[in-house]
Simulated scan of single mutants.
Amino acid sequence: MIFSRNRGSGRHAKGDSRPRAEADLDLTEDDEVEEASAGGKSVRTGGPYDITEAPAGIAQLDLGALKVPAVEDVEVRVQADNEGKIQQIVLVSGESALQLGVFAAPRSEGIWDEVRAEIRKQLFNDGVAAEEAEGDYGTELRARVRTPDGLTDIRFVGVDGPRWLVRAVYQGAAAVDPSVAPALTECLRNLVVDRGNEAMPVREPLPLHLPKEVAEASADPEEQADGEPVNGDGAARRKPSPRPRRK
């Protein structure tokens, strides 16, 4: 795993290299608060799974509300603050990347249709045409956006679960053809969400944090200078990016 500390603050902090529409998207405007409940399980043939439904025996990286499966040839990159709270999770495989986010949702209904419409409107306001298409998880949103590296294809996937929404954003080759990055598909299908029982505002990001041993290593000044990205053994590495790596 590779992670870096976030030196800036706010949605437009230096080092946020996401496409503009993705960086500007605000999913926490709704102030409606839901009641905590232990009921309402959903039935799935594949993940993302709620923690109450997750199959046993899958090796995982525990990042708090998300348990990311350990899949060969997939690099996990996270960006966290000095307290170990994660702002960004990106999985990279070859020339493709998958950015993951998880948010609180009502118990009574899913919110992906509403969120997808807002993403499409934001893209339109930024001068980007987006189109809907059917995928493995229902209706997706596909677009081509301009990044510092040039035009990049992106594909938004939403998965409504019991009191949560997983938003997955594919970038690069897998945004056009999912078959080119089967390892990323496997990661999403084996992802586990630990929603918890606390009442939270709808669309508020669920808490994500570094594993304890990694957070402690990054906080040790002898292990890492402030702001330097490191991997799990404390070795300095470059900062994560949601863009696919260039070969």
Score class of each variant (00 low, 15 high):
Phe3Ser: 08
Ser4Gln: 14
Arg11His: 14
Lys14Ser: 15
Arg18Ile: 07
Pro19Val: 01
Ala21Ile: 04
Leu25His: 11
Thr28His: 10
Glu32Gly: 00
Val33Trp: 00
Glu35Gln: 05
Ser37Arg: 04
Gly39Ile: 07
Arg44Ala: 12
Thr45Arg: 11
Pro48Arg: 12
Asp50Met: 08
Asp50Ala: 14
Asp50Phe: 02
Ala54Asn: 08
Ala56Arg: 13
Ala59Met: 10
Gln60Ser: 12
Leu63His: 05
Leu66His: 01
Leu66Glu: 03
Lys67His: 09
Val76Leu: 13
Arg77Pro: 00
Ala80Lys: 02
Ala80Cys: 02
Gly84Thr: 01
Gly84Arg: 03
Gln87Asn: 09
Gln87Val: 08
Gln87Pro: 00
Val90Thr: 12
Gly94Val: 04
Glu95Ile: 05
Glu95Thr: 04
Arg107His: 00
Trp112Ile: 06
Glu114Asp: 15
Gln122Ala: 15
Gln122Val: 15
Gly127Asp: 00
Val128Thr: 09
Glu131Val: 14
Glu134Val: 15
Asp136Gln: 14
Gly138Glu: 10
Thr139Leu: 12
Thr139Ser: 15
Arg146Ala: 13
Thr147Val: 08
Pro148Phe: 12
Gly150Met: 00
Gly150Arg: 14
Asp153Thr: 10
Phe156Glu: 06
Gly158Ser: 01
Leu165Pro: 03
Val169Gln: 05
Gln171Asn: 12
Gly172Pro: 00
Gly172Asp: 01
Gly172Val: 07
Ala175Thr: 04
Val176Leu: 08
Val180Leu: 05
Ala181Leu: 02
Ala181Cys: 09
Glu186Asp: 08
Arg189Thr: 06
Asn190Phe: 07
Asp194Ile: 05
Gly196Val: 03
Ala199Gly: 03
Ala199His: 01
Met200Val: 04
Arg203Leu: 09
Arg203Glu: 04
Glu204Ala: 10
Leu206Ile: 08
Leu208Ile: 04
His209Pro: 07
Leu210Ala: 02
Glu213Tyr: 15
Ser218Asn: 07
Asp220Ile: 07
Pro221Asn: 10
Ala225Gln: 11
Gly232Trp: 13
Ala236His: 12
Arg238Tyr: 07
Pro240Phe: 02
Ser241Asn: 05
Pro244Ile: 04
Pro244Gly: 04
Arg245Ser: 12
Lys247Gly: 15
